[in-house]
Nucleic acid binder design. Sequence first.
DNA 1: CAATTGTAGTATCGACTCGATACTAATAGC
DNA 2: GCTATTAGTATCGAGTCGATACTACAATTG
Lengths: 189, 189
Amino acid sequence: MLPEAALESAHLIGRLDRLVRSGVAVEGLNPAQWEALRYLARANRFSRTPAALADYLGSTRGTVSQTLIALEQKGFVVRSQSRQDRRSVDLALTRAGAMVLKRDPLIGLAGDIATATGGDAAPLLATLQAILAAAIARNDGRAFGICHTCRHFRRNVQPGAAAPHHCALLDEPLSEADSADICVEQEAA
Amino acid sequence: MLPEAALESAHLIGRLDRLVRSGVAVEGLNPAQWEALRYLARANRFSRTPAALADYLGSTRGTVSQTLIALEQKGFVVRSQSRQDRRSVDLALTRAGAMVLKRDPLIGLAGDIATATGGDAAPLLATLQAILAAAIARNDGRAFGICHTCRHFRRNVQPGAAAPHHCALLDEPLSEADSADICVEQEAA
DNA sequence: CAATTGTAGTATCGACTCGATACTAATAGC
DNA sequence: GCTATTAGTATCGAGTCGATACTACAATTG
């Protein structure tokens, strides 16, 4: 038997997200476009590609391609051909893209969360992370967790170097900044 | 300064909802249609109208009208003219509508919540309710809270009657079932 | 190394969604 | 009664999204 509070909580998560999405058109960006900008602001360099973004959004490459066209036309994203793989495209936020994220409607919800939790959102965050992990496992999705929590992460393999850490999956050096971003390849340790 | 955990929690709420919405097409219902069915299953008799649903969804009457046309064609909802106000339309779930809600994709998320909270989702629920209250206040929205928590609710005004309670705003008798449903007019006590 | 198979991304089409506008009908206020 | 307001619908057009087909490149296989 499913506890009533669990189902009610699921309802409320939907309502909260709907509230955010319905107040979104201010900057002329739709929900998918906001999500893409947020993703690109937090993804490490292995993860800033259309395919990874499509995985993250639970969408298709075709749909994401259109989202990216729109964002590029607005000047918030630039696409460039990858050097490693010339089929692939590197995505990056422009300065304007980073600026518009300062007016992300999600910040309003974050303020409400801070208010409602009295400033300590850590327990809520931990619970939500556990829920997301369960939901992702059930849907065979990718976690898009933080690089340094990954089972392929090797800390401080080159001490003192600009990129002291290492990814054992991609065999690539990792800077401190890399290791704090989310990664399309991340798997729990 | 906004705590990092609050913003991250806001992110996760968005991701959870997106996961639910992306696995939705199973029954041939889109996210707005699911939300409408959920609402009608939980709304008291004053609240089962297109206008109240539009408020709830943060949408417009025109858009909701189309959602309702689709749901009526699928046989999940019936519309009938209101007796009190002949401009108004009463909405009701059909038996098929109630049945399809047993396959609501939100139930999957509720299961994940039950798993992640170890079966006691009450603290999470309380936090989410507080967040939603803050978000609604900020957006000048309606709360759609439970009838008996309303400042217009008068308990047991007609003891022993089938509808013992009373709404002081609408001046209408309220059954036990009425008072447990959500209401478009609800205001915190 | 040539041929095959697989992958990254884009273009395009069609069904659908949604907000805006305009409209009808009914209620409320004066 | 006359006007203003409200409930709901119809319709249009911009935009979204998934599906399909395609190009270009990479990886694999023999």
